[in-house]
């Protein structure tokens, strides 16, 4: 596995007006890992994943995904993005939503049908496809949103707080799904502010006030700081140990 990193973020800053939301971030995500971004809300996680997804552009620095400088439309075809909001058309049925998003990715006919069945199966929504999204519960919407971002079999899946506001059982099942998707070879970048979720990632980036404070596997980070939990490690890197 001497492959180049899948995502390469180099000295990236993003400034909105006078506010520096990201400050000189550098990190690399390897192929086939779940890479977590951990940090409190307002730390700049969403901004960073939007830059990686190609929706936004860095003020300084570069981001490469599959060796292509972002933003790049062709590279975006290979990325799946799930934002914090569910981003679904509520007046349409789940099936119609999936049909729409798959058509946007150029899936048609039999292939489209197959993929819709597969992703619906994956998020356990097969029996509810005919319902309008308006009648869905919050958790179902989240799962449908995840399904929509998986339709085109992205090589990189970017998830912004996929489990926020979701009950623990469902959260467990979403993480189990993510693990399955990863085993199929997909690279996953996921943001979270829940510390115990961070344990499920292969590697973690800790972000605070737009700065990267630490990168490593959960165990590495804990060992380095002689902490029992990720939370303690985060506090240590955040400067609370002094």
């Amino acid at each position: 596995m001497a492959a180049k990193p899948c995502i390469c973020v180099e000295h990236v800053s993003r400034v909105f007006g006078k506010k520096k939301v990201l400050d000189d971030i550098a990190l690399a995500v390897e192929r086939g890992e779940i890479f977590g971004m951990l940090g409190p809300s307002g730390a700049g996680k969403t901004t960073l994943v939007k830059l990686i997804a190609g929706i936004d552009q860095a003020t300084e620095g570069t981001i490469h995904v599959f060796d292509v400088k972002m933003p790049h439309l062709q590279a975006m075809k290979r990325i799946g993005f799930m934002a914090q909001s569910d981003a679904l058309y509520e007046e349409l049925t789940a099936l119609e939503n999936l049909q729409f998003f798959s058509a946007i990715y150029g899936l048609r006919g039999k292939r489209q049908k197959e993929r819709i069945e597969e992703v619906a199966e994956l998020v356990h929504l097969t029996e509810h496809l005919k319902k309008t999204v308006h009648h869905y519960s919050g958790g179902m919407k989240r799962r449908l949103s995840l399904a929509a971002s998986l339709l085109h079999e992205p090589e990189v899946l970017i998830l912004d707080e996929p489990t926020v506001g979701i009950d623990p059982v469902l959260r467990q099942s979403i993480w189990a799904e993510l693990e399955r998707i990863r085993q199929q070879g997909t690279t996953i970048v996921v943001t979270t502010h829940v510390m115990d979720e961070a344990e499920k990632c292969q590697r973690l980036a800790m972000i605070r006030d737009g700065r990267l404070i630490a990168v490593g596997s959960p165990n590495e980070l804990k060992e380095k700081t002689h902490s029992e939990t990720i939370e303690q490690a985060f506090l240590y890197f955040g400067g609370a140990h002094q």
Binding site: I55, L73, M76, F81, A83, A87, F101, A148
Partner: peptide
């Protein structure tokens, strides 16, 4: 509702 963002995360021009 965020669907525009989702659309803009696709290769849609």
């Amino acid at each position: 509702r965020g669907t525009l963002e989702r659309l803009l995360a696709t290769p849609l021009k």
